[in-house]
Design a protein around this nucleic acid. Structure first.
Length: 554
RNA sequence: GCCCCUGUAGCUCAGGGGAUAGAGCACCGCCCUCCGGAGGCGGGAGCGAAGGUUCGAAUCCUUCCAGGGGCGCCA
């Protein structure tokens, strides 16, 4: 019996009481109730606080209501025992038969196990990374590569149609400085003031020259354009490749420059002006963002006639909405949180609903440690840590897992030595090891000609305490994914996997799966093998959500 | 000055208003006659401070303290 099924049973018991006239609920019967796994074993397999929650509305004492519900629940198929405890908790013990069934359900669902309808039918636009193409992807942008992509996978499993987008800032001053730096490097001149230095600039300048040998013979302006166009394209190609190697591929790479060239920016501004949300002052055009909760009004067209950075965002947002995305997400680093106010004001200015049509997720900073010492990062000193450096140091699996396992709200210190270690203090290895162990037992079973139990297996065979614990953990997965989706917190999946791996190890230590010696295979062996198979399914599905491999062997 | 995030065990971190606050690492002590010991079992120690809301607060609200990040007609 799963938590969802239990919730239904409790709702049914409530409904029965209401229909019998023994319970009055002015607001009606809730469609679902909280069913949790108690920490304390004495509190049963599952517990619910419905009696505490509804007592006041029903005008009853919590324990009185709990008692009224207990009888109806106890008669429900699959429930072995219902106890009332403390102020009015209902502690439910599930029968082994109804619990063991979960193993079959998981295997039957396979890769789809964990899905739900949190975002059923919704189209979600996820914008993340969006780093400037003026240099290799540095570590700051990598957190969202891991977390954003995981979130996309989670949203997909919960029913959404997801578009991953990379907003490519190929317009404006930074790109000018980038082109100038390339040009200077090609000429063998020193790095211009406010320019970009580093080996990659030299490399790209060289590559551009190789492609267009006559570039330096052109007039300065034309030469700069050559370096701009080719340089940006090359840089962007490298970033794309790095992300691809990291397991992250975007559905749309959106070029800011196009928004300016296509007139999309003017259209967005015209719309805002129509709505009365712009004004002119000091030679510039402003968005009335303060009116919509921002700290101050913001310039959208500078006094020199150039669109501000925000103007591109206006057009891009409008474009997303016109492409039919009701929900847009933008993921930013904490160093850009100051941008939230104006973006949300923009949403309101368009007549949309901030927080619904646009949600902005902020990820705090990532610090890298080596030998316990912070890794100093300096562009000038050439010690910029890029996504490729991280992958070289600890690998894709550890990188993605390490970045996704913590709440985005907390600043994280990643110890490269720890995450490079192939030992148990490295959480990703703990989970992957559990998966490899599972795979190994399934292989051994197959070698013995033993297959996991099929559809008609007797679930009550899985009655051992550790089997129950593992089954309840497996039953939890869809709820964990749903919570990760609705709270936008992929780290919940990682933590869940660690707990489930631990639960599997305990089962493994207590319950012999395969026949010993020349023992004849029996139904218990096959039932346990099914449970092992179900565990593999859950671990593999969970790791896939994080973009981490589930190795058969290690 | 204003805004955002954080403060939980020696360390790194979980903890969607619920019962006796958890995990890994580190430390101490156990468990290998067969499925992977990269594992399991046991042990000590903690919610930054003060108020408030609630039947019930690590969780919600207020104030304060401490740390991190941010407050351009840059992108």
């Amino acid at each position: 019996m799963t938590p969802a099924e239990l919730s239904d049973a409790i709702v049914a018991a409530l409904t029965a009481q209401v229909e019998a006239g023994t319970l009055r609920l002015p607001d009606g019967v809730p469609s679902e109730v909280v069913v949790e796994r108690p920490r304390n074993k004495e509190h049963g397999d599952y517990a619910t606080n419905v009696a505490l929650k509804l007592a006041k509305k029903a005008g009853m004492a919590p324990r009185e209501l709990a008692e009224a519900l207990a009888d109806g629940l106890a008669a429900t198929d699959g429930i072995a025992k219902v106890d009332i405890a403390g102020p009015g908790f209902l502690n439910i013990t599930v029968s082994a038969g109804s619990q063991g069934k979960v193993a079959g359900d998981v295997v039957a669902a396979g890769a789809a196990y964990g899905s739900s309808d949190v975002f059923a039918g919704e189209r979600i636009n996820l914008e993340f990374v969006s780093a400037n193409p003026t240099g290799p992807l540095h570590i700051g942008g990598v957190r969202w590569a891991a977390v954003g992509d995981a979130l996309g996978r989670i949203f997909t499993l919960t029913g959404a149609e997801v578009s991953r987008e990379y907003y490519f800032n190929d317009h404006g001053g930074q790109i000018d400085r980038f082109s100038n730096s390339l040009l200077a490097a090609a000429k063998g001149e020193p790095v211009p003031e406010d320019g970009y230095g580093g080996q990659y600039i030299e490399d790209i300048a060289k590559a551009v020259l190789k492609k267009q040998p006559g570039a330096l013979d052109l007039p300065e302006d034309e030469a700069r354009e050559v370096f701009r166009a080719d340089g940006v394209e090359m840089m962007f190609g490298e970033i794309k490749q790095s992300l691809h190697d990291f397991g992250v591929d975007f559905d749309v790479y959106f070029h800011e420059d196009n928004l300016h060239k296509s007139g999309a920016v003017e259209r967005a501004i015209a719309r805002l002006t129509e709505l009365g949300n712009t004004f002119e002052a000091e030679g510039a055009l402003w968005l009335r963002s303060e009116k919509f909760g921002d700290d101050k009004d913001r310039v959208i067209v500078r006094s020199d006639g150039q669109g501000s950075y925000l103007s591109g965002d206006l057009a891009y947002y409008l474009d997303k909405r016109e492409r039919g995305f009701e929900r847009c997400f933008i993921m930013l680093g904490a160093d850009h949180h100051g941008y939230v106010g104006r973006l949300m004001a923009m949403v309101s200015a368009f007549g949309d609903e901030p927080g619904k049509n646009l949600e902005i997720l902020i990820g705090q900073m990532v610090n890298l440690l080596r030998d316990g010492q912070p890794l100093r990062m300096s562009k000038r000193a050439g010690t910029v840590v890029t996504i490729d450096d991280l992958v070289d140091a600890i690998g894709v699996d550890a990188s993605r897992y390490a970045l996704a396992r913590f709440s985005s709200d907390s600043t994280i210190d990643l110890d490269l030595d720890l995450w490079a270690r192939q030992s148990s203090d490295n959480p990703v290895f703990y989970v992957q090891y559990a998966h490899a162990r599972v795979a190994s037992i399934l292989r051994n079973g197959a070698d013995l000609g033993l297959a996991p139990a099929g559809a008609g297996f007797d679930p009550s065979l899985l009655a051992h305490e550790k089997e129950g614990e593992l089954l309840r953990a497996l039953a939890e997965f869809p709820r964990v994914v749903a919570a990760a989706a609705s709270l936008r917190e992929p780290h919940r999946v990682a933590r869940y996997l660690e707990a489930t791996a631990a639960s599997y190890h305990r089962f493994y230590d207590n319950c012999r799966v395969l026949p010993m010696g020349d023992e004849e295979p029996n139904d218990l062996h096959r039932a346990r093998l099914l449970l092992v198979f179900a565990t593999q399914t859950v671990l593999a599905n969970g790791l896939r959500l994080l973009g981490v491999s589930a190795p058969e062997r290690m």
